[in-house]
Design a protein around this nucleic acid. Structure first.
Lengths: 217, 217
DNA sequence: CCATTGGTACTGTACGGTCTAGTTTTGAAG
DNA sequence: CTTCAAAACTAGACCGTACAGTACCAATGG
């Protein structure tokens, strides 16, 4: 019965299990109340761990907060990556863009990520570094990757553009802005369904292709 | 030397003067620290008023906060209104849109308003009503007004669109999103200059007209 | 057996809001 | 103008509470 190195969820060392419990509870509590609106006693209670242990692992409230935000941020950034093959013919461009837009929307328009974004924005004055990281792992990263793809498509004559970065920015915000800004201010209940998101994506793609598409699309 | 009723800035009743001082200090302090990060003693000190007086005027910290946010919100909403005449010919549409976009950008991309937006977003969980009001007085109001204008332009054959509201949303976010989202996360130093904002507006208008414009434009 | 954890009491401090007692302003009447 | 009472304001002590972080010691699990 003595597991030597079982790396599954429940088979971690006691320390690691405690650590995960703390992170889980802290994420929930911080997302709900923000930095100042959260107290360490509640995190300890929810995670079933003593305060002492929290301070052993993370040093301070600030340390725990930074840990939570950075891990969520980079994790979310990774989830966006697309492995869909780039189109070969002009007729396939619209479908490619629609697919990308739809996935991006459904990943970002998630209560957890919306709450994270709200919280980080609210803490810009206190934690500017966290906001910068979120910007770079979020919009900036997405737009950069998109720009590279657009540049290749333009080379192949499937898109008509001069500045791939600008086109990527236009595409990104054309698709993302309306639902994101809406959900930012109106709360998680204002997050549209997947069908609505994809319909919205279609409209964005249509406008984008009117400006940057080529004949065959 | 006894002024009877001079309604200028310094000629208000003592009560009104105190009230304005409190509001000014509270705005500054709340915008800097958020709701929880602000204490009433500091507001009293900065406004040169005793705490007692603050509570006489506003009842509670929450009351003062709500007052600040709602007054800033509605005030900013009013400042957007355009009196520029709508174009008569297709060639004038682009200039009309550029003018609108440029003014909208320069009004919204102001440190005070960016700070307000950040703060309200950070407090969505605690004050959902304030966020809703900001949404309605901000994006929603701008888009609605734009949609009405677009509908008239479409009737005159100066724009080609079926759903004015959707077109207005596309236009609005095409123009506003990039700089707004950037400044939201990167802070007030990331607010572009007026020239940069107007150049950005031009690009948005170009894309918009590619999708919704008519030949003559 | 020994490091880690639990439980819990404790410290120090910060802050919202109130109380009190004395001072200033106002506005109207004399 | 002067007088005067009501209203508003000041300064600061004060109360209760909440909370970050620590100390201490018993329990426990590897």
């Amino acid at each position: 019965m003595s597991r030597v190195k079982p790396p599954e969820e429940e088979g971690l060392s006691r320390s690691a299990r405690k650590r995960r419990a703390i992170l889980g509870a802290a994420e929930e509590v911080f997302l709900k109340g923000g930095y100042l609106g959260t107290n360490m006693d509640e995190i300890a209670a929810i995670s079933g761990v003593s305060k002492q242990t929290i301070y052993k692992h993370f040093g301070s409230k600030e340390g725990l907060f930074v840990e939570i935000v950075t891990s969520m941020t980079s994790g979310a950034g990774d989830a966006v990556h697309s492995e869909a093959p780039e189109p070969e013919r002009a007729e396939e461009v619209a479908a490619y863009l629609r697919n990308y837009a739809c996935r991006q929307l459904t990943v970002v328009l998630t209560p957890r990520l919306m709450q994270l974004r709200r919280m980080v924005i609210g803490e810009v004055a206190r934690f500017p570094e966290l906001a910068r990281v979120l910007y770079e792992c979020g919009p900036q990263r997405a737009i950069s990757a998109l720009a590279e793809s657009f540049a290749r498509l333009a080379d192949r004559g499937l898109l008509s553009l001069e500045d791939p970065l600008r086109a990527a920015s236009h595409f990104n915000w054309l698709v993302m802005s309306e639902p994101v800004n809406r959900a930012m201010l109106l709360g998680d209940e204002a997050i549209p369904s997947v069908e609505e998101l994809c319909a919205h994506a279609d409209e964005g793609v249509r406008v984008f292709l009117a400006a940057y598409g080529v004949e065959g699309g």
